[in-house]
Write a protein that binds this DNA or RNA. Structure first.
Length: 481
RNA sequence: GCCGAGGUGGCGGAGUGGCCACGCGACAGCCUGCAGAGCUGUUUUAUAUGGGUUCAAAUCCCAUCCUCGGCUCCA
C-alpha cells in the first residue's frame, strides 16, 4: 500500500488511483529557453523513480510532461539571439532529450507543447469568461481570483498587497485586483501571437498545464508533480482555472520535490550557481549523478558538492562489484552443476531469507512516500550479506543465484541504476574474454615462476586498455575499469 | 511583514516514544608476491540551546538561537 505526501493536505495519504490499475500523472516540464541544469534533474529524476516504482507495482502509468515553448523568457531569449521562439524551442527540446536520455530517465507517455494547444486554451478561457471567472481588459484576459472561493487552498497563502509593486505596471492597471493573474496576454509589437476573440495575443503561463492535463489525462488526475517553487503561484492558479470550470478537484495528489542547493542556496539560473546536465555528466557517470540525486528523500533538500558526487561514485562501484561477484559465481556454478547436480543447502536458505527481507524492506521504504534512502539502505544490507556468503565460497545453487539476480534487476530498474551491469555479454565481449583469459593464463604462469615483472607488465598494460585484473582465491578475474 | 521547511556522529543521510539505520571516511585484522575487490571488527553517552511531560524523548510540549525556501520568472 503506497502512501504519498499530499501538499494539499500536508499529510501522507494512502494512494488509491481513480481508475483501478492505472495511474495518470502530470509533471510540469521546463520552459525550453536554455539548457537544463542539475536542479531540473533533481525533479525529473525524482518523478522518474516514482513513475518507475508505480510501474514496478504493476500500474499502467500514463505520464504527461509539458514543454513551455511560449512565454516572456522564450520571447526575450529569441530576440537576444536573433532567432524565433520556434527555433529556440526545437533546439532546447532536442537538448532536453539528449540530457535526460543520458541520465536514464524514461520518456513520458507524451510531451505536449503549449503552442500546439492554443485553440484549446482559448476555449477554456472563453468558458471562464462566460462564467465570469475571468474578464477582458485591453485585449488581455485575467482570472478573477475573488470569484473563486478556494483560492489559496494549496499554498495556504494569498497574494498580499506587497508584491503588487513588483508586478508589471501595465498589468496592474488593467487588473481589477492585484491577486488576479493573466490568462491571455495581448500582443506587444514584435511578439509572436495567435488570433483570439480578444484580438492577437498569447496564453499566460499557468493555463497550459490546466488545459493539457485535462486533454490528455482527463479530470481529476491522480498525481500532479513539480518543484516546490511551483506551489505558488503556478499550481495554485492551475487549481483555480481548472476547478472554476469543472467544479471538481483537478488533482488528487499534489507532489512537490525539494530543491537542489549549492552551499545551502537554491540552484537557479538567476543566482548563477548552476551546473548544466552536460557539464555534470562530462565529469561523472550519469548513474553516479542519479545515485547522488536519490540519496535523499525527494522532498528533502540536497546540497550539491563534489565530495558528495565522489561518494556516490564509490557507493555505485560497491554495488557494481557485488553484482560482478554474483554473476561470476553464477557462471561458475552453472558449469559445476552441469557436471554434478547440487542440492540446496542451508546457505541457500540463508540467502533466500535475506532476499525476502530485501524485497519487503525495499517495498516498505518505497511505499512510504518513495523513501529512496531507506530503499538503498535495504539494498546495501542485502549486498553485505550476499558478499559475505559468497566470499566464504560456500556452495550455493545456480537457482538461488539466478533468483537474486532477478530481484536485483527489478530493484535496479526502479532506481535506474546498474543497468549496464545487468546486460548479457555481447559477442564482442566473448572474443575479448577469450583473449583476456589467454593473457591471464600466461600471467599466472609467470606468477607461479615468481616472475612478477612479467606478471605486473601484463596487468599494467591491460589496465591501460581499460581492463582490470583481480586475483581471487579461486583464480584471476577481469572486468572493465 | 506574511506563509513554509529544517537544525542528527568527522561527513552524507534515515528514523514521530523504548532495540539496530544505511553509506562515505578513518583505524585494526583476514586474504594477497604486490595491488584491487570482498569479508570481520572498531570509530567511547550524534541528535541546535534551555526548560517541561514520561518509567522511557532525536522523536511529544513550551521558549530561544540559527539556516534555507515561497510571497516576482524558477524544477
Amino acid at each position: 500500500m503506497i502512501k504519498i505526501y499530499n501538499t494539499l493536505t500536508r499529510k501522507k495519504e494512502t494512494f488509491k488511483p481513480l481508475h483501478a490499475g492505472e495511474v495518470r500523472m502530470y509533471v510540469c516540464g521546463p520552459t525550453v529557453y536554455d539548457s537544463s541544469h542539475l536542479g531540473h534533474a533533481r525533479s525529473i529524476v525524482a518523478f522518474d523513480v516514482i513513475r518507475r516504482y508505480l510501474e514496478y507495482k504493476g500500474y499502467d502509468v500514463r505520464f504527461i510532461q509539458n514543454f513551455t515553448d511560449i512565454d516572456d523568457k522564450m520571447i526575450q531569449r529569441a530576440q537576444e539571439q536573433k532567432t524565433t521562439t520556434e527555433k529556440l524551442a526545437t533546439k532546447y527540446i532536442q537538448e532536453y532529450f539528449e540530457d535526460f536520455d543520458k541520465l536514464g530517465v524514461k520518456r513520458a507517455t507524451g510531451f505536449p507543447k503549449a503552442t500546439e494547444h492554443i485553440q484549446e486554451m482559448i476555449e477554456h478561457i472563453q468558458k471562464l469568461v462566460e462564467k465570469s471567472f475571468a474578464y477582458e481588459a485591453n485585449g488581455s484576459v485575467y482570472f478573477r481570483v475573488s470569484k473563486f472561493k478556494n483560492y489559496g487552498k494549496l499554498s495556504r497563502q494569498e497574494k498580499g498587497e506587497k508584491e503588487a509593486e513588483d508586478q508589471d505596471a501595465g498589468e496592474v492597471e488593467e487588473k481589477e485586483h492585484p491577486q488576479d493573474f493573466v490568462l491571455w496576454k495581448a500582443m506587444k509589437p514584435g511578439e509572436p501571437s495567435w488570433d483570439s476573440p480578444w484580438g492577437k495575443g498569447r496564453p499566460g503561463w499557468h493555463i497550459e498545464c490546466s488545459v493539457m492535463s485535462k486533454q490528455y489525462l482527463g479530470e481529476p488526475i491522480d498525481i500532479h508533480g513539480g518543484g516546490l517553487d511551483l506551489v505558488f503561484p503556478h499550481h495554485e492558479n492551475e487549481i483555480a482555472q481548472s476547478e472554476a470550470l469543472s467544479g471538481q478537484p483537478f488533482v488528487r495528489y499534489w507532489m512537490h520535490n525539494g530543491f537542489l542547493t549549492v552551499n545551502k542556496e537554491k540552484m537557479s539560473k538567476s543566482l548563477g550557481n548552476f551546473f548544466t546536465i552536460q557539464e555534470i555528466t562530462a565529469k561523472y557517470h550519469p548513474e553516479v549523478v542519479r545515485l547522488f540525486l536519490i540519496s535523499s528523500q525527494y522532498r528533502s533538500p540536497i546540497d550539491f558538492s563534489d565530495a558528495q558526487l565522489e561518494e556516490a561514485k564509490t557507493r555505485l562501484a560497491r554495488i557494481h562489484n557485488s553484482i560482478d561477484l554474483l554473476q561470476r559465481h553464477l557462471r561458475e556454478t552453472r558449469v559445476e552443476e552441469a557436471k554434478n547436480p547440487v542440492k540446496p543447502s542451508t546457505v541457500d536458505s540463508e540467502l533466500w531469507e535475506a532476499l525476502s527481507t530485501l524485497q519487503t524492506e525495499f517495498e516498505n521504504a518505497m511505499d512510504d512516500d518513495f523513501n529512496t534512502p531507506i530503499a538503498l539502505a535495504s539494498l546495501n544490507t542485502f549486498l553485505t550479506k550476499m558478499n559475505s556468503i559468497l566470499s566464504r565460497n560456500d556452495s550455493v545453487t545456480a537457482g538461488t543465484l539466478q533468483k537474486i539476480l532477478e530481484i536485483l534487476d527489478a530493484i535496479g530498474e526502479v532506481f535506474g541504476l546498474y543497468r549496464q551491469r545487468m546486460k548479457p555479454e555481447s559477442s564482442d565481449e566473448g572474443v575479448t574474454d577469450g583473449l583476456v583469459q589467454l593473457l591471464i593464463q600466461l600471467r599466472n604462469q609467470a606468477r607461479k615462476q615468481k616472475d612478477f615483472e612479467t606478471a605486473d607488465r601484463i596487468r599494467d598494460q591491460l589496465k591501460d586498455l581499460g581492463i582490470v585484473l583481480e586475483d581471487e582465491k579461486t583464480g584471476t578475474v577481469w572486468k572493465w575499469a
